[in-house]
Design a protein around this nucleic acid. Structure first.
Length: 537
DNA sequence: CATTGCTGGAAC
DNA sequence: GTTCCAGCA
């Protein structure tokens, strides 16, 4: 992310909207009796009461923190309500929170350019809306100001004057001698206050927001007063804000990069960066990161709000910690089947709701070797063209795993060397789908085809959690060329005469038009995705 | 090798 | 294409 981008010439109005302890709010909406109680959302609960992933502000008051175990939270706050995330196919199912996040996005997206930054965070570019308001109905012209607007925070204006504070906010918003930048931000405050009100009304969720001239400052601000509050960062307040800000509070500097700035350059606050020349920062951090650091220390960040309302990838994963580590291929296959099922379900939803489809399937795993010195070796990731349909994804995921496992184990495979059996343990598996493209418009039958592929087949074999010997056939049939060719059907394309091989294409019906439509849609889809014909023969 | 399960982005 | 980093529920 640290990549240099200069500020654009004209002042923008950018908002960052962040839902308050989002998963807790989602659960409290479902179970309103939990509202106002110290509440946390936990994943699983068998081992030490599960892991906390979201904590209400009531619970935070008694010292409950995210990443605590459920048992710890109970000890710190005996009256805490622990809600479990739903489980499906033996793993945490986050779909409830994903769709709640989508509700919020679809409300906020009406206001202007909108970027879904995470499941519960959104950036808005409100420049146009603010300019319109400034031209048509500037704050100073308003007879009555919404009461919520006056609860806004203004960085640089003291808040402790309790009673007349709201009056000072009104004064600031309506100053006639303010410069244009401040006036635009004032409009931003009113717009965002209204949006937050709308979100609350339509979803029952509260959120906090930061309003500033760029994404970095808006994001920084949204976290300063939570929950259910908003704050603006006027241009005049930027220097002071950054000068004393601990470097680790900045997005992107909370990890190793921030640590290296502290230890290598003695930089503790963003202001400390100001004394270094751009060249010096580049020498220590590379040219992109160096320029980026030079800019952000001055509050400069030209990153644009991407008009993107949907995620760029889908993933489904699970860890197998400690003694739960997987040690047989059939157990790995079982879990890959579960993960692939969930992934496939989400791909089907994406297709149905958004008319788009992923084109790459990737498998990630983490592993260690027992009884071996270099047990720290990374388990390689593998990807292949994505074929739509549960069983295909399951098949490909397993083949990718197999290819990666061979690489991980080296040329001798799992053959015993001497007496000791060199055995692998899998501690994490995930399958993900990326490079999502829109389905060409005017092809509804391709959708019907994909949808016909997306049914979960009923299988009796599926409950094989216990380890057992793997059949030889399961270990064969995969190499560099994954399995895509084995069941391929070759379909000639009418116009060009070029022939494509479509993996596992069963031509389920005799409708010629339907088939050719599938082919042209698929081939253009894959041509775009891979910049070459898909598996040309 | 007990936070876990996601996302996005840049480096390589 | 793969790896690593980072952030956040």
């Amino acid at each position: 992310m640290p990549v240099a981008r200069p500020e654009t010439s004209d002042a923008r109005v950018i908002a960052h909207v962040d839902m308050d302890c989002f998963y807790v709010q989602v659960e409290q909406r479902k179970q309103p009796e939990l509202r106002g109680l110290p509440t946390a959302v936990v994943q699983y609960n068998e081992w030490q009461g599960g892991g906390l992933i979201a904590v209400s502000y009531e619970a935070r008051k008694c010292g409950v923190k995210r990443s605590m175990r459920g048992d710890e939270a109970k000890a710190a706050c005996p009256e805490i309500q622990l809600v479990q995330v739903p489980v499906a196919r033996g793993k945490a199912d986050l779909n409830l929170y994903r769709s709640a996040g989508s509700e919020v996005v679809s409300i906020l997206a009406k206001s202007g350019k909108c970027e879904r930054a995470s499941i519960d965070e959104v950036y808005l570019d409100l420049t146009d809306a603010a300019e319109s308001m400034l031209a048509d109905a500037p704050p100073e012209s308003l007879e009555l100001m919404d009461k919520e607007v006056l609860k806004s925070h203004i960085l640089g204006i003291s808040r402790k004057d309790g009673d007349d504070f709201e009056e000072s906010v009104r004064d600031w918003l309506c100053r006639k001698d303010a410069d244009r930048r401040d006036k635009l931000l004032s409009c931003g405050i009113i717009i965002v206050s209204d949006l937050r009100k709308q979100v609350l009304k339509e979803t029952e969720f509260t959120c906090s927001a930061g309003i500033a001239h760029n994404k970095m400052l808006a994001k920084l601000a949204s976290g300063m007063n939570k929950p259910a509050q908003q704050i603006v960062v006027p241009y005049a307040a930027v220097q002071e804000l950054l000068s004393s800000l601990p470097i680790k509070k900045m997005k992107q500097l909370g990890g190793k990069l921030g640590t290296s700035l502290q230890t290598d350059l003695g930089v503790d606050t963003v202001g400390d960066l100001l004394q270094f020349s751009e060249t010096k920062l580049q020498e220590h951090n590379g040219s992109n990161t160096g320029t980026w650091l030079w800019n952000i220390s001055r509050g400069i960040s030209g990153e644009e709000v991407q008009g993107r309302l949907l995620p760029k990838s889908h993933g489904s994963g699970k860890t197998f910690p400690g003694p739960r580590a997987l040690k047989s291929l059939s157990n790995v296959q079982h879990w890959l089947n579960q993960l692939s099922e969930e992934l496939s379900e989400r791909l089907s939803s994406d297709l149905e709701q958004n008319k788009r489809i992923a084109s790459t399937l990737t498998l990630h795993a983490s592993a260690f070797k027992s009884r071996d010195s270099d047990s720290h070796k990374k388990f390689p990731s593998k990807s292949c063209p994505l074929r739509f349909g549960v069983t295909k994804i399951q098949e490909d995921a397993f083949n990718l795993f197999h290819a990666a496992l061979r690489e991980y184990m080296g040329p001798f495979g799992s053959k015993p060397q001497g007496n000791k059996q060199e055995t692998w343990r899998i501690t994490g598996l995930s399958v993900s789908a990326s490079k999502i493209v829109d389905i060409p418009s005017g092809t509804s039958s391709i959708m019907r085809y994909f949808q016909s592929q997306s049914t979960v087949p009923s299988r009796s074999v599926d409950g094989c959690v216990q380890d057992h010997v793997v059949t030889p056939s399961a270990s064969e049939g995969c190499s560099e060329q994954i399995s895509t060719e084995t069941q391929a059907a070759v379909i000639p394309e009418e116009d060009t005469g070029v022939t494509y091989t479509l993996p596992n294409f069963e031509t389920p019906d005799k409708d010629v038009d339907l088939v050719s439509e599938k082919v042209s849609a698929l081939s253009s889809h894959y041509s775009k995705a891979y910049n070459k014909p898909f598996l040309e023969v």
